[in-house]
Design a protein around this nucleic acid. Structure first.
Lengths: 223, 223
DNA sequence: GCAAAAGTGTTTGAGGTACACCCATGC
DNA sequence: GCATGGGTGTACCTCAAACACTTTTGC
């Protein structure tokens, strides 16, 4: 069932960079490609956009199909379209990224992924095509956007401690932060509310649990 | 000569928002569409990406073809791909923007543009399809990026006065700035060098002329 | 001499950075 | 009682904001 056009059309894909923090390190979700091209290489989850589907929805679907991960929030990074970026045909990809709590990830390789797992961004394997560049651009964008400490909240579960929040920020920014200044800044900003609950873990003083105060952006659906 | 594929392919276009400052107002370059769809409506210059051409080069070419404007620097805004954004077929567009000195623009409508001219961004005509949203996103991005006052330098010719620079910044940011603080900030930043020349215009003290100090980014070609 | 834009410093307040000790708990 | 991470306050410094007058020219 061929589809014909009067002039050549590129194919359009989406790729998704899922970032998370686990064991004090920033990690990214990669799949091992089960099919050519780049078969056996690690790559960002992604695939072709259906003809009646929005870009964001395609990104959401492909991520779910290949890795089992359901991303609540996807942000567009941009389009990558070097003519030679895929050996099969001209493929233009639109990259998205998401920041998710590690514990929320139920990763299972599926669809045309032979495997799927997290890699530390500081120790990435060889990557298919231009995915290394896409990841580099993602990291640089996420770091820029995290300067105000809001974005890293997406890496945290519903309830979290100040230390967890601080570690998330430190992992994203790649620098350590002063505990007292961090607390002051975050408290003053007023994005958080203290739940009143505490978490007892190990031989030390219990930590207060916080949650994000609801914002308008929290109720925006995937379109 | 039809081109056939095993599954449906969207078409991919590029659109370019050229911003400039003229007569103390921020303006954008629009074309009047000579052909369907949206025939007769005003729109961003743009068109289909050739199959062997990079996205940025396509943006550069389409801008030149339709308006005669040659943009030295194009920055990608992002991809817009709502399935219903074009009535003909599924079209995904990648938007670019450029900031150019008004005097450098030699606008002539050509190709499939019935007309081409600048509009104040504060008084836009009815626009084709989702171009209004693309422009809104462009403006918001350019304003964000102009907070440090570097980007508006692109709106200025080789030699310029402090007042011209300040007006450019004010037009982009949409707020007036204090002359003394502006001068202090810009001088301290060290992006400019004083040429030693002066410009006498009208019945008042002559203005010093400055030029941008060369940076690495200035030598990056369109790829 | 007067109109018009160019050019110039100081004061103040806000926010970011540096820095060290006590607290509550489990074992 | 001791090891472990949780929680707290102050001093300083930097940078941005507010603010008004003199200078140089053309007519």
């Amino acid at each position: 069932m061929p589809y014909t056009y009067d002039y050549p059309h590129p194919a359009v894909t989406v790729d998704v960079a899922v970032l998370t923090v686990e064991d004090g390190a920033l990690k990214i979700l990669l799949i091992r490609r089960a099919n050519p091209p780049f078969e056996g290489d690690w790559a960002l989850p992604g695939g072709f956009v259906d003809i009646d589907e929005s870009l964001k929805r395609a990104a959401w679907r492909e991520l779910a199909e290949e890795t089992g991960v359901h991303a609540g929030f996807l942000t567009q990074l941009g389009a990558f379209g070097r003519p030679d970026r895929d050996p099969r045909e001209r493929i233009i990809t639109v990259a998205y990224y998401a920041l998710l709590p590690a514990r929320q990830l139920r990763i299972r390789a599926d669809s045309d992924a032979a495997d799927a797992r997290l890699f530390e961004v500081a120790a990435l394997p060889a990557l298919a095509g231009d995915h290394g560049q896409i990841i580099a651009r993602t990291l640089s964008r996420v770091r820029e956007q995290s300067a105000d400490l809001v974005l890293p909240l997406r890496l945290l579960p519903d309830r979290f401690t100040m230390s967890e929040y601080q570690v998330a920020c430190e992992c994203v920014l790649g620098q350590s932060l002063d505990k007292r200044n961090f607390q002051k800044r975050v408290q003053a900003a007023g994005w958080l509310e203290c739940t009143g609950e505490q978490r007892r873990r190990g031989a030390h003083r219990p930590a207060r649990l916080y949650r994000r105060r609801e914002t308008a952006a929290d109720s925006a659906p995937i379109q």
